[in-house]
């Protein structure tokens, strides 16, 4: 099916940027639901991302499972890890939950370093994405698949947030005590959201590994978790669109700053600081509010 899709551009550098943006966006929208709707912070998302990448790679490379099956198994493994982490962490709030997830992410990083195939050197020759005998060879095909999966997850997330679970989540963000009083299963809900975000991260990790075909623990560090958090905060945590926009911006930004050479880190930091200062609510909520007010004025 993917083969039938048009090649919009031959520039594989641009396409690769789109692939990485899409992969980051998948993690970011999961994080958005967790943070924006359920009010939980995670500094360990790179851990789930890493589990997804490693589990899927090992299953498909060493055990010869089809890539799609490997990715699903990896998602299940990440989900289980999320349950194990969520159960005791749920008693924690704010900074304490943050440090628990941070600890989890770091432990995963150490485990990959110590016991992952290849150790700190990582391992390569990971099979390319494929389904039912079709192997995705060109970046363009991979891009279509990544953005296709992203689209599906977006639709799923938006539907969920607009329906009953979403309302419950927002209530949870508002007041946990009230939720309890209303008879909502707060603990169950929190675990479900946590697992959902972990599964999103895992899928993204698997896509990354099968696309790049080489992974090492250095891609799955606390630094990446913080970067993911930055995407969500910059884009706006109150809507999953924020995660998408933030992910694309944060992925493209360093590429556009190449002209600054050694000063690019500095400029990057300055841009982040200024955006946080002046676009406090996040880019997407601000832009939608602007558009909304324009429309209202026109109608009035």
């Amino acid at each position: 099916m993917v083969y039938a899709l048009p090649n919009l551009t031959d520039d594989s550098y641009f396409i690769t940027l789109m692939i990485f943006s899409g992969i980051n966006a998948i993690v970011a929208i999961g994080l958005c639901i967790l943070m924006g709707s359920a009010g939980q912070v995670s500094l360990g998302q790179a851990g789930f991302y890493g589990i997804g990448a490693y589990a899927s790679s090992v299953l498909s490379q060493s055990f010869g499972l089809p890539v799609v099956i490997s990715m699903l198994c990896a998602a299940v493994i990440s989900g289980i890890a999320a349950v194990i982490l969520a159960a005791p962490s749920l008693r924690l709030k704010g900074h304490y939950l943050a440090v628990a997830t941070l600890g989890f992410g770091e432990i995963i990083h150490i485990i990959l370093n110590e016991f992952g195939p290849g150790g700190p050197s990582g391992f390569g020759d990971i099979p390319a994405l494929s389904a039912g005998g079709f192997v995705l060879t060109t970046p363009a095909h991979v891009a279509w698949v990544v953005w296709g999966i992203l689209l599906l997850l977006m639709i799923f997330s938006l539907n969920m947030l607009n329906a009953r679970p979403g309302r419950a989540l927002r209530a949870l963000h508002g007041s946990e005590t009230a939720c309890n009083a209303m008879g909502l299963d707060v603990v169950g809900l929190k675990i479900k959201v946590f697992v959902l975000s972990a599964v999103y991260a895992s899928i993204a990790g698997s896509l990354y590994a099968h696309y790049v075909s080489f992974i090492s623990p250095s891609s799955f560090t606390l630094f990446h978790s913080v970067l993911l958090l930055m995407m969500v905060v910059l884009g706006g945590i109150t809507t999953v669109w924020g995660g998408l926009v933030g992910a694309v911006i944060i992925t493209l930004l360093p590429e556009t700053l190449k002209a600054f050479e050694e000063l690019d880190v500095l400029v990057y930091g300055l841009i982040l600081t200024l955006s946080l200062l002046f676009l406090r609510r996040g880019i997407v909520p601000i832009v939608t509010a602007k558009i909304h007010s324009l429309l209202v004025r026109r109608n009035a």
């Binding site: 930055m230 880190v265 500095l266 400029v267 930091g269």
Partner: peptide, 14 residues
Amino acid sequence: IMVTVAVAIVMRGL
């Protein structure tokens, strides 16, 4: 907290 992260990046750059 994210602002402090961004400031840290600026400081590292400097």
